[in-house]
Nucleic acid binder design. Structure first.
Lengths: 154, 154
DNA sequence: TGCAATTGAATAGCACGCTATTTAAATTGC
DNA sequence: GCAATTTAAATAGCGTGCTATTCAATTGCA
């Protein structure tokens, strides 16, 4: 009885295994944003706002939809978030001249300046994980491949 | 130039590695809840509501705080969620006789009955991951240990 | 015993993140 | 060349998830 047929999947994971992985994913994500909340408090950024800033620090002047593609978020989430970043003086929102449907997001001087102050965050997070670099890299790859498969099924 | 010293962690992960892991965690979590949204639509449950039901199906009659301990959520999140489950006729909320501060959550007949209909969910999720059981178990353990370390730092 | 400190739940207020819908601009197709 | 479709962003409405606060019940200690 060492091997089991792979067939009865529902029976093989009664209300347990898969749920536990998903719950681990869910609760670890919450714990992560909680850590970021503390680390980003001084910058007055939330974690999703920080992600948007990371994207813009890498490449300025993207359309809302381009930011959304990188972060897997859509305009319903990004529009209000970007308005808050605009209100905070970190980004500008301008309709594109070539395509008036698009809104181009640009960094302000203040937004660019924030990059320096954010430089300490990654190290602090890395530290908090208490993991080796290779461990984190491996975990990242596993999560990305899982993300892809989940997205395909959804 | 193949090897790099591991010392300057902040410099070694300039705005990259740790951030990438965290983003992988974040975005995979979103993808996961998106899949659950589809799978749970027929049960009229959100993913957090499903988690609460899982806890109650395992052990009925828990206090709000006990549910919160299992799910790493507090009363500010659970109270409105539980009221929605109550409004849906799935649970009852009663103040404990021994300690009137506590509210005991009990399954209704309808809540218990829902367990059968939810039985297909884990299999469907397992299927969607496209992973081996061992792979998922390993990932789960890694996430749990990461969660613990993040919680300690937060 | 009596009163302060603690605890459990609820509430207020904010920021996501989603689906569904709306509006306006660009593209297409005939 | 113009109607029909498609696209980008915004909006409406809902359900988390959080911090901070409030209120009532209980505990603990002088």
């Amino acid at each position: 009885m060492k091997t089991r047929t792979a067939k009865p999947q529902a029976a093989a994971a009664p209300l347990g295994l898969d749920q536990q992985l998903c719950f681990a994913l869910y609760s670890t994500g919450l714990a992560m944003t909680k850590l970021y909340r503390k680390l980003l408090a001084g910058l007055e950024l939330t974690y999703p706002q920080y992600l948007v800033m990371l994207v813009l620090w890498e490449r300025d002047g993207l359309a809302v939809s381009e930011i959304g593609e990188r972060l897997f978020l859509d305009s319903a989430t990004l529009t209000p978030l970007l308005k808050r970043l605009e209100a905070a003086g970190l980004v500008s929102r301008t309709r594109s001249a070539e395509d008036e449907r698009q809104v181009v997001i640009g960094l302000t001087a203040q937004g660019r300046a924030l990059k320096k102050r954010a430089a300490a965050v990654p190290g602090a997070v890395f530290c908090a994980t208490g993991c080796e670099r290779d461990e984190l890299l491996a975990l990242k790859r596993q999560l990305e491949s899982l993300r892809e498969r989940l997205a395909d099924s959804a």
